[in-house]
């Protein structure tokens, strides 16, 4: 199928769903009070783009996402590689990881508020905690999954330690890193918005609560749509960044062929 046509089914589906919602609201099938027509929401979205307040909120959400995710990466990548490549660390820390991982980040909100108050620190703490685990697990898997035949090849050709790390180990872990960062990125966004909604840290999440309190249902929908678009956009950006690094990997090869 030609490359341009790959977007066709998705685009048709999105327009179809929007059209259905529009019809449902306009005909009264859905109460217009709680389900404003999509054309109005889209109009508000365009209107928001010219509003400075909107851009400040967006920047604050993105700031929480970025700092939290960065902390998670800085901690999880070396820790995951160390745990995954050491028999002892793996045996010792696996139960700890398995215990901490399922703790929902939101359960730590009271603690975070006690310690950090309701500002950016709470948001960053929650984002970093939640984003840490998927990435840590991916790095552990990645370190454990380095092909023993590739390592024996390196050994039998007496590659220098540096060459083995740079040309054998790092490239084989890279797909796990990319997947981990993408999973953690969406988790980070969820937690950034959650912190804003629940704790009231400034950002899109708090703007949603404010729109709801003010009875501006249209704006509320607009901002909800923005969080969705944000997640989609960040994922697309990350895919774009990893493509030149992972063009040899099956996940990206399939994309080229399809």
């Amino acid at each position: 199928m030609p490359r341009a046509h790959r977007w066709l089914p998705g685009t048709v589906a999105v327009i179809g769903v929007l059209a259905l919602l529009e019809i449902a609201s306009r005909t009264g099938l859905l109460p217009a009070r709680w389900f404003p027509p999509m054309s109005d929401v889209t109009g508000r979205l365009v209107g928001q783009l010219g509003d400075g307040r909107f851009w400040t909120d967006l920047a604050q959400t993105l700031q929480g996402w970025a700092i939290g995710l960065l902390i998670a990466i800085v901690v999880a990548v070396p820790a995951g590689l160390a745990i995954g490549s050491s028999w002892w660390l793996y045996r010792a820390l696996r139960p700890v990881v398995e215990f901490l991982r399922p703790v929902p980040s939101v359960a730590l909100i009271p603690l975070a508020i006690l310690v950090y108050g309701s500002g950016i620190e709470t948001k960053v703490f929650l984002v970093a905690f939640a984003a840490l685990w998927p990435l840590l697990l991916q790095m552990i898997y990645g370190a454990r999954d380095v092909d023993p035949v590739a390592l024996e090849t390196a050994r039998s050709y007496r590659l220098r330690r540096g060459d083995t790390v740079a040309r054998v180990l790092i490239p084989s872990v890279l797909p796990y890193l990319a997947t981990g960062v993408r999973i953690s990125s969406s988790v980070a966004l969820v937690l950034a918005v959650t912190a804003e909604l629940v704790v009231g840290s400034p950002g899109i999440g708090r703007a949603i609560t404010e729109a709801q309190n003010g009875g501006d249902v249209e704006l509320m929908y607009t901002l909800i749509a923005v969080t969705g678009l944000l997640g989609w956009g960040l994922n697309a950006v990350l895919r774009r960044v990893e493509r030149p690094l992972l063009h040899w990997h099956a996940s990206h090869r399939l994309e080229e062929v399809a």
């Binding site: 035949v149 090849t153 040899w248």
Partner: peptide, 16 residues
């Protein structure tokens, strides 16, 4: 000494 493995798909680096 050079060694050629049976499992070529794992002995070659797919990223090179």
């Amino acid at each position: 000494l050079a060694l050629v493995f049976q499992d070529y798909s794992r002995s070659l680096m797919p990223w090179l």
